[in-house]
Write a protein that binds this DNA or RNA. Structure first.
Lengths: 191, 191
DNA sequence: CTATAAAATTGACCATGGTCACTTTTAGAG
DNA sequence: CTCTAAAAGTGACCATGGTCAATTTTATAG
């Protein structure tokens, strides 16, 4: 018998995801307990772990999906025309990344692929973010430095984003917004 | 009676740290179990947690101490004269950061201060690294861009470091060394 | 030296993520 | 329709980090 995926599987998975989403909507990501998810989904604990490698894999799914939504929405918007435009455009992404320390921790842990040869949902959004910035930066009337490859600039923006959010979580600099912190970095890529 | 710290406290703390160090030397950071630490130190489990807020606080201490050693050694060396020099100088730091995924995760989580108004050992090493890079970059015969504040460049180097190590842990790019990945970023700061 | 309050330590206990041998369900061959 | 093997699901159980009321040790006032 070939390895088939039964309809039941998809239904159970959907129940788990929906239960998790509801719980998170109510009390945030960090407070999520596997016990509560399976209770609400009406399945046994073991079932959870036959659908997700571990609790963080579920988080990867959920946070990844949310980030992708946000980036897709940003992508649909106008191409920014300056550093501050760019920062403004990225604001929803930043807002989500800073919404909970736990969320940012998961983002960092999953920003690279977790297992070899596997790119998880969050890792994919980092690629999406890279490509979005690359698109912006390759815009011909964009005043970006031409002595640096566009790919490097796009990657660098990702690095600066992480840095700015990290510093936000650092008590030492919390009076400055992430956006204000990000902008001077971006200027370094401009002519 | 005033709040005094008994000699016993220091002794117990030292026993715990030494036990942990031995265990880590033998099987790495990730494999460390609190249970084993207290067994080896000859104290009860509760004692551990009256000395360290949680297991990660111990890791913050140990990893922070190691990072500080490494940075202090780098600081004692010659001031690098180019991007590749700089990358070469940072190699011991990178080697430790990439030695275990777990170590890098802890570094990221603690890179900002954890609690408000408190800078932990790892967070301090990020400051140390920032100041080291600042010192290098402010060297008058250093060919760095002068249209960007030295402080920003130093901060940016930190961001690039993290980015390069993160990508190292990403299966997609693991064929390139961290050093090779870091260098082109650094060139962006040069004239 | 003794009494006593603060400091330090203890270990049974809890919370929660994760495992796995077993049971139930399902798809499809005959 | 029945039989069977794979797929899916179950829940008792384990691993491990962390808690806290009770106990022991220490410093020092009198």
């Amino acid at each position: 018998m070939a390895k088939t995926v039964q309809a039941r599987t998809l239904k159970t998975r959907a129940k788990l995801l929906s239960a998790a989403k509801n719980l998170i909507e109510h009390s945030g990501y960090e407070a999520l307990r596997v016990e509560e998810v399976v209770l609400k989904a009406g399945v046994a604990k073991g079932t959870f772990f036959s659908h997700f490698k571990d609790k963080e894999a579920l988080m990867d799914q959920l946070i990844g999906a949310r980030l992708s939504e946000i980036l897709t929405e940003i992508e649909a918007g106008p191409v920014p025309k300056s550093a501050s435009d760019m920062v403004a455009a990225l604001t929803p992404f930043i807002a989500f990344a800073t919404s909970e320390r736990y969320v940012f921790d998961i983002m960092l842990r999953y920003s690279g692929a977790t297992a070899i040869q596997e790119v998880g949902p969050i890792a994919q959004t980092f690629l999406q973010q890279y490509e979005l910035c690359l698109k912006w930066v390759m815009n011909p009337d964009w005043p970006v430095r031409d002595d640096i490859p566009a790919e490097l600039i796009a990657e660098g923006i990702g690095a600066f984003l992480i840095q700015a959010v990290s510093l936000q979580f650092c008590a030492l600099h919390s009076s400055v917004t992430v956006e204000a912190r990000l902008e001077p970095y971006l200027h370094a890529w401009f002519k």
